[in-house]
Design a protein around this nucleic acid. Structure first.
Length: 382
DNA sequence: TCTGGGGTCCTAGGACCC
DNA sequence: TCTGGGGTCCTAGGACCC
């Protein structure tokens, strides 16, 4: 039996979902005009989160600064994101997909893989995928692309072909015809830097990559990535559709300043805020952290990061903030302008062995009470 | 035009141990 | 006086994804 994987990808997810919401309120369909979902348009540093197809046709892209997009298209319709609504849409889309196969891996808020190998029972995969996409469109009001392949990589590559509202196949025997002519950047896991290195070596298409020996590739991108790229360019991928829920391994929060700052007090306020947010989030998920890191970003986008172990895993904001301040003082000269500051928590555990120390240090009780009151006032922080 | 926020994984070098 | 090889853990930085 042929292994058959579907990859379902919501077309311009945040934009489509916002459009559905606005249609319910009797507003025009923003999918039909140049429009984007973005952060606060008055903040010159906000960027495009999602763009409509008419906007993309004008050259507007995800992750572009809003100011640049407005220069391209002064009439651009800008809308703000609504994360709670997006979660609702995502759940609706995932639950329809799940009725087609229980072997489902959610890959992000707007993408999932389905292992259809034992679900087709002689039915044509393209017909089944078309039924799935049409059911989502008629029940939820937004379109998806479905990519069909004999593994996850090929299914995902296929869903990225012509959009929107399309079903495409990419079977192993179609790799040469449909995938090899594409530029290397179109291959999953080939980003900007890898593309640069490959181009410098004369590797332009996925086909070029497929025919390059792993020895040469190793010198360009390292051993592990070389083996992966070589396999993927040849359409090979053995990774299973993982149905298990995976707990997060790290949490982080960061803030980019509207203007670069060099005032230590401003930095400290931001550090306090991001530490509160990230500590709140681990408490909500009943984690404690044994490792904390801080990172600062300079004007030129260079990042310096410092981390340390925490002897006793903790979720107490005050203790984390104390470490964060110490780490920042080790890496920042309190003068060079900063663009961004962030705090990350990792080496997470669910253990609650530090409860004992509550009876030893009254200060900790005070800290915990402070955190409880914070958690009550910000119950739905994303 | 001037570049967000939140994640995962890999690599390379140093410390330390046997 | 000069010194191997392997393993593990940690850190900093970098690449990728959505």
């Amino acid at each position: 039996m042929r292994r058959t994987i579907f990859h379902i990808d919501v077309n311009s997810a945040f934009l489509s979902w916002t459009a559905v919401r606005r249609l319910q309120d009797g507003l025009p369909d923003i999918r039909e005009v140049p429009s984007v979902v973005s952060g606060d348009p008055s903040d010159r540093r906000s960027i495009i989160t999602a763009a409509s197809i008419p906007a993309k046709r004008l050259g507007i892209k995800t992750a572009q600064p809003v100011s640049m997009a407005l220069r391209i298209c002064p009439d651009l319709v800008l809308v703000r994101g609504d994360w709670e609504w997006y979660r609702t849409c995502s759940e609706g889309f995932i639950s329809i997909c799940r009725t087609y196969s229980p072997v489902l891996q959610q890959f992000s808020i707007d993408e999932c893989f389905l292992d259809m190998t034992f679900r087709l029972q002689g039915k044509d995969p393209v017909e089944t995928a078309t039924a799935l996409k049409d059911e989502i469109r008629s029940k939820l009001g937004f379109t998806v692309n479905v990519g069909i392949g004999s593994n996850k990589l090929l299914a995902k590559m296929a869903s990225d072909f012509e959009k929107p509202d399309k079903v495409h196949t990419l079977w192993e025997e179609e790799v040469q015809e449909k995938m090899w002519p594409l530029g290397v950047r179109d291959l999953l896991w080939v980003g900007k830097r890898t593309e640069e290195r490959l181009l410098a070596y004369g590797i332009r298409t996925i086909g070029d990559l497929a025919r390059t020996g792993t020895g040469a590739l190793t010198r360009l991108v390292g051993r592990k990535a070389a083996l992966q790229l070589h396999e993927n360019a040849n359409g090979i991928d053995f990774s299973p559709v993982e149905t298990e829920f995976r707990e997060a391994k790290s949490y982080s929060a960061e803030r980019t300043f509207p203007k670069d700052i060099s005032d230590p007090r401003q930095l400290d306020r931001a550090l306090f805020n991001v530490t509160c947010i990230v500590a709140h989030r681990i408490r909500k998920d009943a984690f404690k952290a044994s490792c904390i890191s801080v990172f600062i970003k300079y004007r030129d986008f260079s990042v310096v990061q410092r981390q340390c172990r925490i002897s006793q895993p903790t979720d107490i904001t005050a203790l984390l903030l104390h470490e964060a301040r110490r780490l920042v003082s080790e890496i920042w000269d309190q003068a060079t302008p900063l663009r961004q500051v962030g705090v990350g928590l990792s080496k997470l555990t669910h253990d609650d062995s530090d409860q004992l120390s509550l009876f030893e240090d009254p200060q900790l009780e005070y800290y915990r009470a402070w955190d409880r009151s914070y958690d009550e006032s910000y119950p739905a922080k994303p």
